[in-house]
Design a protein around this nucleic acid. Structure first.
Lengths: 216, 216
DNA sequence: GTCTATAATTCGATAGAC
DNA sequence: GTCTATCGAATTATAGAC
């Protein structure tokens, strides 16, 4: 094994550097937004060199792209898997079941982790939908496959609604999810704890709220 | 009358300068957010001098405070007036009536004005709730009186729901409003036109969506 | 891969003439 | 009240040694 670089380590250290940058960027963008986050703040907190960001990611915007991709891919994967399983079990899943499959993966981001950093990933995901362009569009690409699949499933569950009507109702449901993600950890948040039962209860309440609106 | 300054005008020009700065700041913050908006971009578009911003407002943050205050005060005033009138006409207004009084003033911002600048104020108002701190808190102060009054009214209309429960449901209703404001003018927006009947129809649909969720 | 050093801009804010 | 000129600090990004 080659030993080079900052601490005399090889490519393992490279991976660590890359992930440390991603970790800090995720947290800072969640809190301050993309424009409010500087690379100097990121590398300072991450304990790495400023040039390392450009070496590993190329630019600030590409760093964001990598950050959102790392978060989005497993979430989208879990959402699509849950939807597939649902469609195999039932020929025509209910709106509630579909929305549950959509909400659980992102809200389970709130599970487990430590004290403060628990809700960072949820806040970051919420931030993706509230950022000015072109950041919002970059993030949207990563979640697009999931959105399309769930919109199609909802259309089958609600065949009486026109496509545009369903589309903006689904959009409002996503807005609700985003709000829940952004306020995670705050005093009046929907999700108060980080235990599995807290999440399940919150998902259940949100599904009820959304489904009522979508049928109306 | 004294004639001084840029175009040999007096205090009238001062007022014009101040409002031109506010107009452009409103539009740019709506599009790019606070951190993404530079004073140099603002003064360039407004056709005024950079120093004028600091002379009239003191700092970038104070400019934002003035911008949100100019927009929020009439909106809050109209909301509170509509609520008062509603409470005088009926002893116990419905959830739908309360939500209508809450939605109409901000959504009527979309009425009338010209081609592009029509949805700027709505987008700015939506942006206020999606900005990172401390901007979001500064904006929240301006809308706080309205929020408290409507929360109290909703509590009377839904006495069976606990305060925390009602609070986060109202919070989700606001998230829906914010999303509608942010997407104003986009292809899949809830509000497609800028005619009074378009707004009324959108308000009606949103109230139905929100009320269904709040009762659930 | 990691580092120092720095280029090349841009930022918010201010001093002082008019 | 408006202007020019500028300060001091911050920004992203890069070149080049190791």
């Amino acid at each position: 094994m080659q030993f080079t670089g900052r601490n005399g380590m090889g490519s393992t250290a490279s991976v660590e550097t890359k992930e440390q940058i991603l970790d800090v960027a995720e947290r800072m963008i969640a809190e301050r937004g993309f424009a409010g986050t500087t690379l100097r703040n990121v590398v300072s907190q991450a304990g790495v060199n400023l040039a390392a960001v450009h070496y590993h990611f190329g630019s600030k915007e590409e760093l964001f792209r990598a950050t959102v991709a790392r978060l989005a891919r497993p979430v989208v994967e879990q959402e699509l898997a849950a939807l597939r399983q649902l469609q195999q079990e039932q020929t025509s899943p209910s709106v509630e079941a579909i929305l549950t499959a959509f909400l659980e993966p992102p809200l389970k981001l709130l599970l487990g982790a430590e004290e403060q950093s628990r809700m960072v990933r949820a806040q970051f995901m919420g931030r993706c939908r509230t950022e000015p362009e072109p950041i919002q569009s970059i993030a949207a690409q990563e979640f697009d496959a999931s959105l399309q699949a769930f919109l199609e499933a909802l259309q089958q569950a609600l065949p009486d609604q026109s496509r545009p009507q369903l589309q903006w109702k689904f959009d409002l449901a996503i807005a609700i999810l985003v709000r829940v993600q952004m306020e995670a950890g705050q005093p009046n948040a929907v999700i108060q704890g980080s235990q599995p039962e807290d999440i399940q209860q919150a998902v259940s309440q949100l599904v009820t709220f959304m489904a009522a609106g979508m049928r109306s």
